[in-house]
Nucleic acid binder design. Structure first.
Lengths: 345, 345
DNA sequence: GTGAAAGCGCTAACAC
DNA sequence: GTGTTAGCGCTTTCAC
């Protein structure tokens, strides 16, 4: 049986209250007594019991405020599912969650939503935003004031955020290249790249990782063209349509972000040209449908549910275990989905 | 704030003890009082608080006994890692774990280990064994005596086991076929199948799923030959060597079970013949090395760590939430690994 | 500065 | 049959 605070107190010849004061650095204890208590606690291998902590801590529940650009973005449905699974599991442990949803990636909207969230005085913040100076500044201010912030799905570089929970975009880009090369056509493939925005780091990293692998393997592909979908299916559709008309020799379409349905619609409507292979990222009902119909060959996913779940868990552990020190990032896997393993979890 | 047992007692005009008796069907309560209590509890939306339960339940910790055929089987290293992660997380909630390790799949050895485990009177059992009548009988007996049993990695059909935590072997076999077909060579591929044993259900299902996909898609492959590795690398090596000599036209080697290193060694040592593609299951340090060197193209994994972790969690939840009713299986994903996404979680 | 005590929600032993 | 009470291990308040 593990050693309790009571046993430490008894062994040190003081009361539980005093031990607690020392262990939580709450001061008001004579230095020599403190040293003595610390020593005996260490010697006995004392480690606070989480069940006890949680129960006692129920008086001040842990509220986590989320800000997500999830309106009109199916990707975040799974993230939210993960968040709510965690909420259900940890509700009895004092975890409460509020989500503020935003449409798109307008900096002002994001800052507005974050500030609105902060009005509610959450114990912690968890956001998926854009890696720009304004947001970074905003986040750093919040952290400085004492509210820990977790970055989910999109990291915020050089901020004091507690940790990042999300995918490694370079690795997912590399994986796309790997899949393509494993098809071993042995000819120079004509690739059309549909990216979300050249201003979004993650999208660029997916291209960077992709190129890295070709370079490392000394294989070349021919870049037919590259266009931005702005994560919008309509824009994606019209641009892709034009692109495919002017580039009849495309072998592969590599879609690094949203707008997948738009691109696929354009591919499906084509009346001539070679057979086209498609690699994209992240599933939803429409993407799954295109995979089933053989339009999309590979989808590289990033465990969205896990991102939601783990972001809650990270914060819960952080608070329960005493909000001390460094917290590791949680990097989700690059999960390859094809028709055969897509619908069976 | 959630409603507590105290509030229910007050509302029903009885003591907490009585409410507890009713809620746990421990009898000794007048029928009409019981009905009244149940009704008020329902009306108030009472749900027992897990934190309170866990703390109170610490007096009788939950001990889970594992029996795993893990000696000399690298696959189970990750399973054990997952088990120990869960143990660490839930130790403070009263979870204790003991593992008995066995070498191989001898029925008598397994029964012996299970009985030895039962000697220690665990609160629950978790085993990875063979789906044979003797084992099934043994498990059913244990369940009947009141100890819940979870089947991990290998299901035990038609037993009263609480649930199964592991992969869907059909789906993983289908995934192998899907990957092969995505390479679209457009010719009839010559396939050599290296299976573990024709007596092991999971191995057969991986072949069955593989064949299903070809049939459904109206594509044929040519089965060059099929041999059993007995999950042994030496046997695998010698048999594969011979097979490859007598079948110089093999395009793909499909390895459904262990013995991967043996087969790969034979492939690597070949001095003539066409380039061979390899699909296998489950990683370990040696398999990863073969992937890096380009001998193995695809590895289909089954989240072994998750299997370990979730098996503990299933039992923990079952006990905390009152050991009532049905528990869902936990089916792990068929995770495709290639060189580029293998080493990054 | 330090000790004592109440209470988080639940279970189980003991009274009546 | 039913109520009371003593913990589980911890935090926090209040008293000295």
């Amino acid at each position: 049986m593990a050693v309790t605070i009571k046993q430490v107190a008894a062994a040190a010849g003081v009361s539980r209250g005093t031990v607690d004061r020392v262990l939580h650095n709450r001061g008001g204890v004579k230095p020599d007594v403190e040293k003595h208590i610390r020593k005996t606690a260490d010697k006995m291998g004392y480690f606070p019991n989480r069940a006890g902590k949680i129960l006692a801590g129920r008086k001040q529940p842990l509220t986590i405020g989320y800000v997500l650009p999830s309106i009109g973005n199916l990707f975040f449905e799974d993230v939210k599912t993960g968040i709510h699974t965690a909420e259900r599991e940890m509700k009895d442990f004092g975890v409460n969650i509020t989500i503020k949803e935003v449409r798109g990636f307008d900096v002002k909207d994001h800052i507005g939503a974050i500030n609105a969230m902060m009005e509610e005085n959450p114990s912690a913040l968890c956001i998926s935003s854009i890696d720009l100076p304004e947001i970074r500044k905003c986040v750093n201010k919040i952290v400085k004031k004492g509210t820990p912030v977790v970055a989910i799905n999109n990291d915020l570089s050089n901020t004091k955020r507690l940790c990042y929970v999300g995918s490694d975009y370079i690795v997912s880009g590399r994986t796309a290249a790997g899949l393509m090369l494993l098809c071993r056509s042995r000819k120079k493939e004509n690739v059309l790249i549909a990216t979300g925005s050249l201003n979004v780091k993650g999208h660029n990293e997916r291209i960077q990782g992709f190129n890295e692998v070709f370079r490392e393997r000394n294989v070349q592909y021919h870049l037919e063209d590259l266009f931005e979908t702005q994560d919008d299916n309509e824009i994606a559709y019209f641009k892709a349509k034009k692109m495919l008309e002017s580039h009849p020799d495309v072998d592969w379409v590599y879609i690094t972000a949203a707008g997948v349905q738009g691109v696929c619609r354009a591919i499906e409507e084509r009346t001539q040209g070679k057979e086209i292979r498609v690699i994209c990222f992240d599933t939803n009902q429409y993407v799954r449908d295109y995979v089933e119909r053989g339009i999309i060959d590979y989808v590289i996913c990033q465990e969205p549910k896990e991102q939601g779940y783990q972001s809650v868990k990270k914060l819960f552990d952080y608070f329960v275990d005493g909000a001390k020190g460094h917290v590791d990032d949680y990097i989700t896997k690059a999960v390859i989905k094809i028709n055969e393993n897509m619908n069976f979890t």
